[in-house]
Amino acid sequence: MNKSEHLDSVIKTHQITKEEKLLNKFRERNKEVKDDLFEHYKGSIYNPFNSGSYAKNTAINTKFDFDLIAPFKRYAFGTKGTLKEMYEDVYDFLYEKYKDVAKVKKQKVSIGIEFYADSENDIVKIDVTPGRELNEKQYIEDSKLNLYVYSRYGKFDAGSERIQTNIQAQIDSIRNRATTEKDSIRKIIRLLKVWKKTKFDYPTKSYFLELITIKAFDNKTIAGNLWDKLKTVLEYIKDEVTKDSFTLKDKGNSSNDLADTLTESEKRTLSNDMKNILDRIEENDENIKTYFPENAKFKEDKKEENKYQVKGSGFFTIPPKNERFG
């Protein structure tokens, strides 16, 4: 089989434009939440804005990642207000506002609003990340925010108030590279997201995969067809992520190291997963379909008249004597 052709089809069947109707539902809910936040915290909040893969131009149609950043003013929660108080206040507001129509839950640094399935069985999920400017009016100058860490986030402890970043810079840096290098970086990021979607709650953040892809392109010669490029990036992740010297600088704050968002054991898992993908595809090209599946919903219908078949004249079988599964 031609692996690059398959990967190309994976990307095509995951294009967000194929899910325009669902995308519009996300856009509408996103606007609703944004307007509610702005109205409720009038005078204490700057304009909420989108981050996440949709804003970064790296989205796939099975996971839109509508993340909304709520940038609060320094004294929005009183002169002695803590980041924890900010996080809890936003959670309480969103919970009260949406509890009848959505599941509202606390996440690592954000609050997830998962709207119940509509009549077409579509589920819209918006993540809201509250952040607070470092000093009064400083956000206007530097776009920097402090985030609250609700639950353990790699090396960041729960209850930590130390994540400081410039989310707008994060978005811009990824979007710029993903747009200008759309045949390489953007495609590889999307393929890695398709792979991530095949896993149970995988600890590696999409932002981590975006940054490590860009770092691979900056440090390795990545050329050839789509499979060659993907293979080089997978090898790079496998070889580099567990090294003590490995760092992944946050584009929003170079003193933040995204490598710290994974524990040592999670890094080993990521490296092993990359090794497994490479080994299994090396053994048999067909295995690429398991790790990088097309979105069946948009696969072109090759309508052959296929049927289940029988080898002889009857159906009766006693299955083979011994078989081992693993």
Binding site: K311, G314, F315, T317, P319, P320
Partner: peptide, 10 residues
């Protein structure tokens, strides 16, 4: 299993 002669179905 698929290629086994003992299995009647293809």
């Amino acid at each position: 299993i698929t290629n086994s002669k003992e299995v009647a179905i293809q």
